[in-house]
């Protein structure tokens, strides 16, 4: 396993490293909890989104069928005139919500579902195919709005899961082991240095003793000659 080479094998270095290691372990614990939470949220949301998607598709199919019927019965002219008569336009509000620190959009519609007498076209001059089509479009729009919000939430949560997952894996398999290795390396290095120091001291001591011995002998020889 690799270890960091840019750290000094000093006591200060070791302490800093230990701090980092403690931090990394804490981060790992918190992030894996967040990951679990996100996954739980997604498992709750995904079937809902799937249901909404199916609903959207079925409503779209129905609207397509109705638009064919409306074109057949009213023609372009009737459809265009009904469209020109519309007085209420649906509006969309965008806001944000926080899920595990992920900002997800909340989309709400206004004036999506309208009363048949408030749509703008006269009731007496139109046929019910226009009503059915308008209702169908309103339902489709409502389904789109719900689906869009939840789908965006799901996508952002999934992206977050991937990001956090990558981080957790990196911490688990890379950062923490490297730090542990480095810690081991530094302690070994420090032990080694200590041993070197000791042995060096022994050497010095021995040399000193030898030198002293030699000095003594020389002094003795000189006194003998004189």
């Amino acid at each position: 396993m690799a270890y960091q080479t840019d750290v000094k094998p000093t006591r200060a270095g070791l302490l800093a490293l230990r701090n980092r290691l403690r931090m990394a372990r804490k981060a790992y614990k918190i992030l894996s909890m967040k990951l679990d939470g996100l996954i739980l949220e997604v498992t709750h949301l995904a079937p809902e989104v799937k249901k909404e998607y199916d609903l959207l598709i079925s409503r779209y199919a129905r609207t397509k069928l109705l638009i064919a019927a409306a074109y057949m019965m009213e023609g372009t002219v009737g459809m265009t005139v009904a469209a020109y008569s519309v007085e209420v336009n649906p509006e969309i509000d965008l806001s944000q919500r926080n899920v595990f620190g992920v900002k997800v959009p909340v989309i709400t519609g206004k004036n999506v579902k309208t009363d048949v007498v408030e749509r703008g076209y006269g009731l007496l001059g139109t046929t019910l195919v226009i009503d059915d089509l308008a209702t169908s479009y309103e339902e489709l729009l409502a389904a789109i709005i719900t689906y869009a919000g939840n789908e965006a939430t799901l996508k952002r949560l999934l992206a977050e899961i991937e990001r956090i997952g990558r981080r957790v894996r990196a911490l688990e398999h890379q950062v923490i082991p490297t730090l542990e290795e480095t810690e081991l390396y530094i302690s070994r290095m420090r032990d080694e240095i200590e041993r070197e120091d000791t042995s060096r001291l022994f050497h010095v001591k021995r040399r000193k003793e030898e030198a002293a011995l030699r000095d003594d002998q020389e002094r003795k020889m000189r006194s003998d000659i004189s």
Partner: peptide, 10 residues
């Protein structure tokens, strides 16, 4: 006002 055209048409 809103709905005027539909009322007149009716």
């Amino acid at each position: 006002h809103k709905g005027l055209f539909a009322d007149v048409e009716n």
